[in-house]
Design a protein around this nucleic acid. Structure first.
Length: 274
DNA sequence: CTGGATGCCTGGGAGC
DNA sequence: TGCTCCCAGGCATCCA
């Protein structure tokens, strides 16, 4: 569920760890951890090597990278239910898979009940970009009409399938795909090549939908909270997601909910013509 | 090249 | 109240 806006809000809420030195790394579940490329030098997996100073927070699509000075980058993917918490006051220790203590006494922890997410350790940010993020498309905040239009021209894939493909554009999941397509007036199942007008409209819809969600702190449907444990309120902006059978905010017609691409898809039959 | 089906995983909600 | 069932979906993988 955490998509680009939620991960971006998480990134921003972690700003105060920049400049902090890692004191201790504790791992409770090794099976959520991986190495990037040849990063495994035989030492134990720590994600953030103790002794290193955190100096940058990067995001690409739905993935967050915490870079330390002198090498050692931790990449976090929240999957469906992941949380990255700073100084969590909640006693909730269940499903916490890793924890790092910083030199100001604060703790950074990663929880993920469903374990669809994970942690990756890389040598440096170049390794992350060249290996882990190599296949990812442009970040969805920077999507252009051309990027989408060229794919619709080259294939007959449904537009929603294209938007969900992280290799084309990184950061869009089921919620914002439906929201952006509604905003652009395009049916999710459409397989037509997008005209210049529609491609421009869709690119603008994606950017504005994501930015609006970021402004509201992301969408919290159940699990998402930022590093301080605060929920977002962007779910109140949703116009189609989770509203199947309800009235279209634009035309008043009934929103249709279908199963498409093994996902729940909601659209307005009138505002998003086939 | 496609999409469909499946599995991973847990918590929450519905239904009985 | 408590049980079972189903569903949510990001992503990898195999299959048609």
């Amino acid at each position: 569920m955490p998509e680009l806006p939620e991960v971006e809000c998480l990134r921003r809420s972690l700003a105060r760890i920049v400049g902090r030195r890692v004191v201790r790394a504790e791992l409770f579940r090794l099976d959520v951890t991986s190495w990037i490329g040849d990063a495994n030098d035989g030492a134990a997996w720590t994600g953030l090597p103790p002794g290193n100073e955190i100096f940058a927070l990067h995001r690409r699509g739905k993935q967050l990278a915490i870079e330390t000075r002198g090498g050692g980058v931790l990449v976090i993917h929240l999957g469906m239910s992941g949380q990255t918490l700073l100084d969590s006051t909640r006693v909730e220790r269940t499903h916490t898979h890793a924890c790092w203590t910083l030199d100001d006494g604060s703790t950074l922890s990663f929880r993920d009940p469903r374990r669809f997410g994970g942690l990756w350790a890389g040598r440096d940010i170049q390794a992350v970009e060249n290996v882990l993020w190599k296949g990812l498309g442009a970040d969805a905040l920077n999507v252009t009409a051309t990027m989408i239009q060229s794919v619709t021209r080259a294939s007959k894939r449904a537009i929603k399938s294209i938007l969900l493909d992280q290799r084309v554009v990184a950061g869009i999941g089921n919620i914002y795909a439906d929201e952006a397509l509604f905003d652009a007036g395009i049916r999710p199942t459409s397989r037509r090549t997008l005209s210049d007008t529609l491609a421009n409209r869709l690119a603008a819809s994606i950017r504005s939908t994501l930015n609006a969600a970021i402004t509201r702190g992301g969408s919290t449907l159940r699990d998402y909270v930022d590093a301080s444990g605060s929920a977002g309120s962007a779910q109140h902006l949703h116009r189609v997601y989770g509203r199947g059978g309800e009235c279209c905010v634009s035309c008043g017609g009934v929103l249709r909910q279908i199963s498409f691409l093994q996902r729940t898809t909601v659209f307005c039959p009138r505002c998003q013509p086939a």
